[in-house]
Nucleic acid binder design. Structure first.
Lengths: 335, 335
DNA sequence: ATTCGCCGCGAAAACGTTATATCCTTTTCA
DNA sequence: TGAAAAGGATATAACGTTTTCGCGGCGAAT
């Protein structure tokens, strides 16, 4: 059986209350007693039970995180940054990896509620009515990181996806490309689906480029999806000279596909990514990408959440971070 | 304030005990009462407090995980697999990302103890005396995943790193390579440092290849490290015609370096990786690699840990999984 | 007809902490 | 000098559950 505060008290010859005082660094304990208590703690190897502590303090120092895919470079980087911030603020992370598994998400939201987590971070926006309702019901601060759900009542930390996509497309246009393929995300996603698509459309239209239906495809942000859609783009009569994929993973897939068709990036086709994940520097050619400040996104997420938890309501629901075009090797002027 | 079991009891007109019985699916509750209780739970939106439950049951359903680097494809894949198994067995994961930060590890081990986690998973082997001592002291089942520390008293799930490395090297030898560069890990690591190095050495010696000091280098498993060490290998007079890096990340770094020097993989230099991470299929050329069964490793880890937790002591401390050479494009016969 | 055992329920005692109330000292200050 | 304030310690009541125990009622077995 674990040693408990009572044992420490007995061993040190003081009351339980005094031990508790020493543990929590309160005043009103003389140094000699404090020393005796600390010795006892040391000797018995006592570690206070956070469970009991949480119960009486009504505070768990727990934060629940729902990640769509742990193995994705993008999400794991955000998570890593979130973990740093959490640890620095003495919060612990309960993580759930829902790989497209909607049931698991529902289950975990319940677990989070039962565990009395103080806040919840969600990194995807495909929330159905049931989940939306549940989130509202449980009355725990929730923040969306890197995505923004339709429901305006939820806080979120994002970039301006529309503008970022607009800027990325514009850059390709400025390089002289007349035809620019687009590999988008799920149109049911507002943030990364619709907004990025609109940005692309409007940049094209504003600059007098015609939108070709054949050049526009929608994937699921993953490498394989980028590969397959690129294959389709290459199969049409006059493939675009540049391709904008709304995730680095899909951009990588596209690059691989292009190479597998004996074409070169960027000489034959320029490829632009989105996210600024670690991948961009690991692949050859290095990937020009519309970068989200991933690290900062994690930090900002925790920042806002911690404020929500401590009761300081955030004035606006959204924190919009700056996107940044990082030019590497995968895009070049149209010759 | 949260609604509690007492409120449910009052609302349903029964005793607290009865509500608890319904919650835990015990017998001895008549159907009509059960229905009334369930209605009350529904109406009040009651979720039982795991905190209180844990306290009285002396069981938290929590498992602590210490990951060296969340952003690494290898670790995040193991973690993802561990999470799946945990979730399936109604366990929740408390994750800690220690990026070379030894203090953070110490801190988290304490947190794990205070949180009364039922088991701890550690994915690195650089544990110093203090940590070793602490782990022994806290008396919670601990298992090492993908690594095996010197201390034989700890359980672990690994591959036979020596043999895997031996086999990988032998494959390169069989391809006709006379000179094979080696980019190893930290020699202070038993599993991935020493064992893999010995495997390489012995495979070379057993097949009459001379070991060239200049061809042997030691990195830190990361992409950048592979790049830098490959640069050194390329700077010597007669670079090896094949290179074996003991992580896929380093192998990728090596490939990038080779390409940046206007050489081709595998035509000029063959590159062999280790791990079988997702990267292997994402890069071009695809990476031949000595694959660890990453998914299974996560599963086996949880499997053993759960048995340890339930008190069924595991006969042997180690579970050794099968490694497998997966031949892709990055290695070819020496011409 | 009495005992025995299972049902079906509730009251109350845990679980390991912190918070509250209380009590005795000692110090401070008018 | 006396009263109030502050310091130092304790006993006890929470916190929200599960578990133990006990107590009727009822059918079956003795």
């Amino acid at each position: 059986m674990q040693v408990k505060i009572k044992d420490v008290a007995k061993h040190a010859g003081v009351s339980v209350t005094t031990v508790s005082r020493v543990l929590n660094g309160e005043r009103y304990v003389k140094d000699d007693l404090k020393a005796k208590v600390n010795d006892a703690i040391q000797e018995l190897g006592y570690a206070p039970s956070q469970i009991a502590r949480s119960l009486v303090r009504n505070k768990t120092n727990l934060i629940g995180v729902i990640v769509p895919d742990l193995t994705s470079s993008f999400y794991s980087t955000i998570l890593s940054s979130i973990e740093d911030m959490a640890s620095a603020n003495d919060y612990n992370l309960l993580v759930c990896n829902i790989s497209e598994n909607i049931d698991k998400e529902l289950k975990y939201l319940n677990v989070f509620q039962e565990m009395r987590v103080e806040g919840i971070i969600i990194m995807h926006e495909k929330i159905n009515e049931e989940i939306r309702h549940l989130i509202h019901k449980i009355n725990i601060p929730v923040i969306f990181s890197s995505v923004k759900p339709l429901d305006q009542s939820f806080a979120s930390v994002i970039v301006d996806d529309y503008q970022a996509s607009y800027d990325a497309t514009k850059y390709l246009i400025e390089l002289g490309h007349e035809t620019i393929g687009f590999i988008g995300g799920d149109l049911q996603d507002i943030t990364s689906g619709q907004n990025r698509y609109s940005g692309y459309r409007n940049a094209m239209a504003d600059n007098g480029k015609t939108l070709v239906d054949e050049h526009i495809r929608f994937g699921d942000y993953k490498v394989r999806s980028g590969y397959l859609h690129m294959k389709e783009l290459l199969s049409i009569e006059r493939p675009p000279t540049a391709v904008f994929a709304v995730s680095d993973d899909m951009a990588l897939g596209a690059m691989n596909c292009i190479r597998d068709h004996q074409l070169r990036v960027p000489e034959d086709i320029s490829v632009m990514g989105f996210d600024g994940s670690l991948l961009t520097e690991l692949v050859r050619p290095t990937l020009t990408s519309m970068e989200q400040p991933i690290q900062e996104m994690g930090r900002a997420t925790m920042d806002v959440l911690l404020k929500q938890i401590s009761g300081k309501k955030i004035p606006t629901g959204d924190v919009v971070l700056e996107h940044r075009l990082v030019i590497r090797e995968s895009c070049q002027p149209r010759i």
